[in-house]
Design a protein around this nucleic acid. Structure first.
Lengths: 208, 208
DNA sequence: GTCTATAACGGGATAGAC
DNA sequence: GTCTATCCCGTTATAGAC
């Protein structure tokens, strides 16, 4: 894959984080990437195609830095690693903010743009499974389905808190505190359901 | 307030739910509302002003139907009422879907449009307090700060789950199950922290 | 592969009649 | 208050040279 193409995708993430999907102008993107407008249409089908590729690019990049970060502390306790991985997205660092903002934008756009849904669903499933795995490292006895459900809740909460933080209605520190507490609560909950024999039988909450 | 003006706001919610803020065309809005484009500019400053008013309109409407629904079951147990109020937003009914979609869109837009932030922050604070109050009815002994934090988590989770549902990456039934379980977990958590030595206290009045 | 120049048009906003 | 008609700018997308 050409250098230019990658440069355009990186620039797209930057511009989306700055202006939103709605505010993305192919011209501004061209300037940001240091190329001409026409080259963007040469490398990508059209505006929507570009967005699709950017979504995949952003989610790969997020996955990459999450994994790197965790690998660096592979010796750390599973719970610490889980917290790190989730709180990583709630930091006021340029590249984190950029990735979170772009991700949020593209997710929101997917509600109205079916072309984005496949990429979004794929990225989402990968992320949930990753978190489920880390939860599994914390709670080896918990059943897979419970881990997935827990990961679903934690990642959805993270997206909700992130959206509030980025739209300026929740201070970052509150978002981080909320996330940290939720992790603790979730782990405790899963631990209780996973080891019913230790204490009294604790059945699942409500029937569907 | 004129009939027309309200009709335009209602139509705006409908069109935003159909096309997104990004896809809202003043012309389509005019058709939907059964008025001319010019009238929209007569009643609202400009496109952004219209969005601001629509945000306030949508959040008022949501508050209204939440309250109505709860009032109808005022005799129900507090926990049931809390669940009802939150799960209300996760239903595949036209007007609910419309409100949730429009709300999500406007929230996402606020990240890049400071003009929307004040309305958004206000609506958000009202909603969190409402949920915190209902949590307080379930757990009279819990301190106000814990209730607010819990409500923050529950509403943020709801927004996260809702976004996933509406973007088609999470089935509605999963979203509802996740929400229901989270409520149970959260209430249990708050109950434990509020009554470290005993449980079942149900008589204390409003904490400060 | 990459550029400059331009076509083509969608859509926000306004003028002015009634 | 409400309409019809229209302006006109910004934006996507393409043509064609190098």
């Amino acid at each position: 894959m050409s250098d230019r193409r990658t440069a355009i995708l990186e620039a797209a993430a930057t511009v989306i984080a700055r202006r939103g999907v709605r505010g993305l102008r192919v011209e501004e993107l061209a300037t940001e990437a240091g190329v001409s407008k026409a080259l963007i249409y040469y490398h990508f089908e059209d505006r929507t195609g570009l967005l699709r590729r950017t979504l995949a690019f952003v989610s790969n990049r997020a996955e990459r830095y999450t994994t790197e970060q965790s690998a660096a502390d592979v010796a750390a306790e599973p719970l610490r690693r889980l917290e790190q991985a989730l709180l990583l997205e709630l930091q006021d660092l340029p590249h984190v903010r950029e990735n979170s903002t772009a991700w949020g934008e593209l997710r929101a756009s997917a509600v109205f743009d079916p072309a984005l849904r496949d990429e979004l669903a794929l990225a989402s499933v990968i992320w949930v499974r990753e978190v489920a795995d880390q939860l599994g490292a914390v709670l080896p006895t918990a059943p897979e389905s419970a881990l997935t459900a827990g990961a679903e809740r934690l990642t959805a909460l993270l997206e909700g808190l992130s959206a509030r933080w980025l739209s300026g209605i929740l201070p970052l520190s509150d978002a981080r505190a909320g996330m940290r507490e939720a992790i603790g609560v979730e782990v405790a909950h899963l631990a209780r359901s996973a080891t019913p024999s230790a204490h009294g039988l604790r059945q699942a909450d409500e029937p569907d």
